[in-house]
């Protein structure tokens, strides 16, 4: 019974890991990665290390998720790239 739970948990982790790096939608990737962190902290509890589980839940799912979501928002927001006329001139001169 316990072995079944372990196999299911590891299978789920592998599946979420594959999903989070193969999603075309970045937002979905990040959400899946956050879910990965949460299930991973469950795995740490099963492996008898509650200290690591606490850190994983707070850092892996919390702080890393916030950082990743912020980056996705940044890349989606179509910020104006630095126009930097100097570099454009340099490029034209190189050509």
């Amino acid at each position: 019974m316990r072995a079944l739970f372990d196999v299911l948990l590891v299978g789920l982790l592998v599946w979420i890991a594959i999903g989070s790096v193969s999603q075309r939608k970045l937002f979905k990737s990040v959400v899946m990665f956050t879910a990965f962190g949460l299930f991973l902290s469950l795995a740490w509890v099963r492996l008898g290390s509650p200290d690591v589980a606490l850190a994983e839940a707070a850092i892996g799912a919390g702080v890393t998720g916030a950082l990743l979501l912020d980056a996705v928002g940044h890349m989606r927001s179509r910020v104006t790239p630095y126009p930097s006329p100097a570099s454009a001139e340099r490029r034209d001169a190189d050509a």
Binding site: P50, D51, A53, L54, A55, A58, I59, G62, V63, A66
Partner: peptide, 21 residues
């Protein structure tokens, strides 16, 4: 018991991030 500087620091940082949001 389980706990310590790293876990507490992470919780504190996450709280700060929430306040920033």
């Amino acid at each position: 018991k389980p706990g310590g500087a790293f876990q507490a620091g992470a919780v504190l940082g996450a709280g700060g991030i929430l306040l920033a949001l």
